[in-house]
């Protein structure tokens, strides 16, 4: 398309900092944020490469070696770095796969919610009138109900399956995007450039896709980083309660839920997956917070 060729001819867009007229030094990360970013990179790599890293199949049981402790114990056994669970499955392998499943679910869910919410937010702002009313009523409705309760009810009524569960992850946060997008678009629409593009005769797709959306992307991305930990917590909570990811598939929450029966004898079964969840959500929150203060100086 000609729009693309024109873009290619143009020099690479300047980094956002330069555009905002702020010195690049302001983007230097504090130590804590760097650690958080490093953890996020590590966890993502692990999730991405999990099947290559696992020493055993995560479902492979060995009833002779059940509940073996990790490497630091004198009772640990060769080949199982983090020991084994109640069915003799290798804990490290399960932890790697569970990290992959939990992160993939949270990522997919967050993206589904972001796309859905952004679309509905644009629609509400663009059409106004009753469309706006209906979307905002749905937003109010969802904000009024604790989503965990909605999810539990849907799982009870419809029974559990993976795609339903994924859909629920996606529905979890859409309303924050819808609300945010709507207000961003409403103010962006009044900006001179948006009026000018309309006056040029652009169709809505061009107006929103090429001009408004790229200009309001910053806050939406921040919202993404803030929603991601919430989606992880939703998935792990439901799986912890035994109502989310079902065996034979595993997730961090499910491992934690299984492990709590062995707190007295094998605490690491619960603490290791819990630790991974906590580190991931904590890192994401720290990173998202930092990003928000960078992009929006009025927020404290």
């Amino acid at each position: 398309m000609s729009a693309e060729t024109a873009d290619n001819a143009a020099p690479a867009p300047k980094p956002a900092a330069a555009r905002a007229g702020r010195p690049v030094g302001a983007w230097r990360m504090p130590l804590l944020v760097r650690i958080a970013a490093a953890i996020l990179v590590l966890v993502s790599l692990v999730a991405l490469l999990a099947p290559l890293l696992t020493p055993y199949g995560y479902e492979e049981t060995d009833l002779l070696y059940r509940l073996k402790p990790p490497f630091w114990s004198s009772l640990s056994i060769e080949g199982h770095l983090l020991g084994t669970d109640k069915l003799g499955r290798d804990l490290l392998s399960r932890l790697l796969i569970a990290t992959q499943v939990s992160l993939a679910l949270a990522l997919l869910g967050t993206l589904i919610g972001a796309v859905l919410g952004t679309f509905l937010g644009i629609l509400a702002a663009h059409r106004g009138g009753w469309v706006d009313e209906v979307v905002m009523m749905l937003v109010d409705w969802q904000a009024a109900m604790p989503f965990l309760i909605i999810a539990l009810a849907v799982l009870a009524f419809l029974g559990n399956n993976f795609y339903l569960f994924l859909a629920l992850m996606g529905l979890a946060g859409w309303e924050t995007y819808a609300r945010l997008t709507r207000s961003l678009v409403l103010s962006a629409r009044e900006q001179g450039y948006a009026v000018a593009v309309r006056a040029l005769g652009a169709r809505p797709l061009r107006l929103y896709g090429r001009h408004i959306l790229p200009n309001v992307m910053g806050p939406l991305i921040v919202q993404l980083t803030l929603n991601f930990p919430q989606t992880i917590l939703l998935e792990t909570s439901l799986s912890f309660l035994g109502l989310g990811i079902q065996p034979p598939l595993t997730s961090l929450g499910q491992m934690l839920g299984d492990g709590r029966d062995y707190l007295l004898t094998a605490w690491w079964l619960a603490v290791l997956p819990g630790g991974v969840i906590f580190l991931t959500t904590l890192s994401m929150s720290l990173f998202g917070d930092w990003l928000r203060t960078r992009l929006d100086p009025t927020q404290r």
């Binding site: 929450g253 839920g257 619960a270 819990g274």
Partner: peptide, 18 residues
Amino acid sequence: AVFGFSMPNFFLGILLIL
């Protein structure tokens, strides 16, 4: 505040029990 926001309450509960 960040700790409270990021800590899954089921995990916190289990740590407390432990």
